[in-house]
Structure formats: C-alpha cells, structure tokens
C-alpha cells in the first residue's frame, strides 16, 4: 500500500510537470510551479540538513579531541558565513555583511585553493605513475598532446595546431561527449518512464 501511494504521487507529479510543458493551461501551470517550489524547498532542506550534519560531526570530533584544529576551522568558517546573514537587522543572503564575507573571504580562499590545482595535478600524476603506470602514462601523453595543440602561437605552425585542436574537439571528443549525453538522457527518460508507469525498483 505504502509502495503504491509513493509510486502514484511520483507519477502524478511527473505527469503534471510533463503535461505543463506541452499544454498552456494556467491552472496546470500553477500546480507545476507549486511542485517546482517544493523541489526548491527540498534542495534547501537538504542543504540545511547537510550543514547540521557537518556541525554535529565536527562538534563530536572536538569532544573526542580528534583533529581539533580542522574542526575549529570548519565551525568558525560556518559561523563567519551564517552569523552575518542571521544577525538581527540583516537582510539575509543579500545583506552587505554577507556580500563582504563572500567577496572578501570565500572567493579569495576558493580561488587560492584552485590556484594550487596545477602543482597538485602534477603530484597526482606522479602518484598515478606509481600506482597504474601504463594507463597514467598514456593519459599524461594525451594531455600533453592536447596542450601542445592548444598552444596559442602564430604563423603556419600555429594555424596547423589550431586546426588540429579544432578537429580533435569537434570529432573524437564531441563524439564521446555526445554519446555520454545521449546515454544519460536515454537513461533519464527510461527511469522517468519507469517511475511514471510505477515499475521502478526503488519503490520496492
């Protein structure tokens, strides 16, 4: 019984959104918009639950005296972002203090971490060579070949490299990428059809 109710609700919600795309009807549009708002709320709920779990986990680690420095950093970071937005008189995510924290703290920190991607990738490559030498070497050679083709140099050699890079991007990479996208879309459509028809195994 529980299974059939969940399956029916899922199928109904899916059908409403699907039919709303095909038919212009204000009532149906309103219902689809309401369902979509529920989805947005669900995503927000998942975010809040994730943050709470993070707090619980790191408070627990502090209590057990495990990696205290890391846990304090995580909790302080959470507090720095949350407090300006939740403080009395704040306008929330668009408040000046939150904007300052995002622009002056979050963005430079994330950018700094990503700036280390280049040396860290090289370290990862050397580790890969130790663990799976043959496969990693082939992958690194392919990466080097792509980088050579992308070198923005002028003259005849530059034109030849640019046309080779365009061919690689437009033929083999595009073929693999489109194959992946079509595969993902077909799997998504199949899963959606199974849910709508009530034959999805996840309800068992």
């Amino acid at each position: 019984m529980r299974r059939s109710i969940a399956a029916a609700l899922t199928a109904l919600a899916g059908l409403v959104v699907l039919v709303d795309l095909a038919i212009a009807n204000p009532a149906l549009g309103g219902l689809a918009a309401w369902l979509n708002r529920l989805l947005v709320l669900l995503a927000a709920g998942a975010g809040v639950a994730g943050a709470l779990m993070l707090v619980v986990r790191h408070v627990g680690r502090l209590a057990r005296r495990e990696d205290q420095l890391g846990s304090v950093a995580v909790l302080m970071g959470l507090g720095l972002v949350l407090l300006p937005g939740l403080a009395p008189g704040s306008t929330g995510a668009d408040g000046p203090a939150v904007r300052w924290v995002v622009a002056a703290l979050l963005a430079p920190l994330v950018a700094a971490v990503l700036a280390l991607l280049f040396p860290l990738l090289l370290v990862a490559a050397s580790r890969g060579l130790r663990i799976r030498a043959r496969e990693t070497a082939v992958m690194l050679a392919a990466a080097a070949a792509v980088l050579i083709m992308l070198l923005p140099i002028g003259g005849q050699a530059g034109a030849w490299l640019a046309s080779a890079a365009a061919w690689v991007r437009d033929v083999p990479i595009a073929a693999v990428f489109r194959g992946l996208l079509i595969g993902v879309a077909a799997t998504g459509a199949l899963t959606a059809a199974r849910i709508l028809l009530g034959s999805d195994a996840s309800h068992d």
């Binding site: 280049f118 090289l122 490559a125 990693t136 070497a137 050679a141 080097a144 980088l147 050579i148 992308l150």
Partner: peptide
C-alpha cells in the same frame, strides 16, 4: 602550458 607539457612529457615519455 610549456611547463606543464615539459613535466607531462618527462613523466610519461620515459615509461612509454
């Protein structure tokens, strides 16, 4: 890019 190419070729070229 040249540094990356040099490192990639040096690390994979010997094996290949």
């Amino acid at each position: 890019m040249l540094v990356a190419i040099a490192v990639l070729l040096a690390s994979s070229g010997g094996s290949l």
